[in-house]
């Protein structure tokens, strides 16, 4: 059976001033509907490039990516992205930012009151309904990221792509948002791919962790199953043996077998 999202022998290289640099080499991965996948690796290993390929923001050099057996060739709302730095349009209010997405994606399918209800539903999902009339500059970093998630969810994507979504946040805010993402997944059972460099985040949130080797020409080094039931609670898992084993496996991969030499 073919996966929901299928990444099939994808290579990616960039060419600049006649010099070709290979970023990703022979990436193959199949993801089922409803799965949460984390992609982890040292910086510069091409994690974000891989996400951009799935989003369609960059083109593959060779190989192909299929979503429900259709080739991914351009960006689109069925593969919504939550960007690391939120990317809200600063001249629009929270509501208008989500509205931009909703009116574009559902402009023909939903009536105006339906669209309004859908916007508020998504803002409430991330607990941001109260700030609908604020501009991005008036809310905190964590709130901006919540709105970014609401905007992406409001597109009703087949697959939600998160590019280091909590990387710029402090630890406490990050934990809150991780819980929020787990809750949303519990309710919607949506497919998610998340880039991260946080081992705990990867183990806590995902069903499988894709570990990348160091670049150039990074590959998938290992794929780790996280056999933990859901819903997951961070406090209970803090001492859980399976959790700790998974955590150790990722740490060993990152710091023993694939140490990032340049970072030393």
């Amino acid at each position: 059976m073919a996966g929901y999202l299928k990444i099939d022998h994808v290579d990616k290289s960039f060419e600049r001033n006649g010099v070709t640099s290979e970023v990703l080499k022979d990436i193959s991965l199949e993801i089922e509907q409803g799965e949460v996948i984390s992609i982890i690796g040292h910086s510069g290993c091409g994690k974000s490039t891989l996400l951009n390929l799935i989003a369609g923001l960059t083109e593959v050099t060779s190989g192909a990516i299929f979503l429900e057996d259709k080739t991914v060739s351009e960006p689109g709302p069925e593969r919504a992205v939550v960007f690391q730095n939120h990317s809200l349009l600063p001249w629009l209010t929270v509501y208008e930012n989500v509205n931009l997405a909703v009116s574009k994606v559902f402009g023909a399918k939903k009536s105006k009151p339906e669209r309004h209800a859908w916007i508020m539903h998504n803002l409430d999902l991330v607990q941001m309904g109260h700030a609908r009339d604020k501009r991005p500059a008036e809310i905190s970093g964590g709130m901006k990221q919540r709105v970014g998630i609401a905007r992406a969810l409001a597109m009703e994507p087949k697959i939600l792509l998160l590019d280091e979504p909590f990387g710029a946040l402090d630890a406490l805010t990050r934990a809150h948002l991780q819980d929020a993402v787990m809750e949303i997944h519990q309710r919607l059972n949506n497919t998610m791919i998340m880039i991260t460099h946080d081992v705990d985040e990867a183990v806590l949130l995902s069903d499988r962790i894709v570990m990348m080797t160091n670049g150039p020409a990074a590959r998938i080094g290992e794929v780790l199953e996280v056999p933990l039931g859901r819903p997951r609670r961070r406090l209970e898992l803090a001492g859980d043996r399976t959790y700790l084993k998974c955590r150790e496996a990722v740490l060993k991969f990152l710091y023993e077998r694939h140490r990032f030499v340049e970072a030393a």
Binding site: A55, G56, L57, E74, P75, G76, P77, R79, A80, V81, F83, N85, S87, L89, L100, A101, K104, V105, M155
Partner: peptide
């Protein structure tokens, strides 16, 4: 910013 262009691209 490239991010705004990406948002526009995803929304088509």
């Amino acid at each position: 910013p490239n991010d705004y262009r990406n948002v526009a691209a995803i929304l088509r």
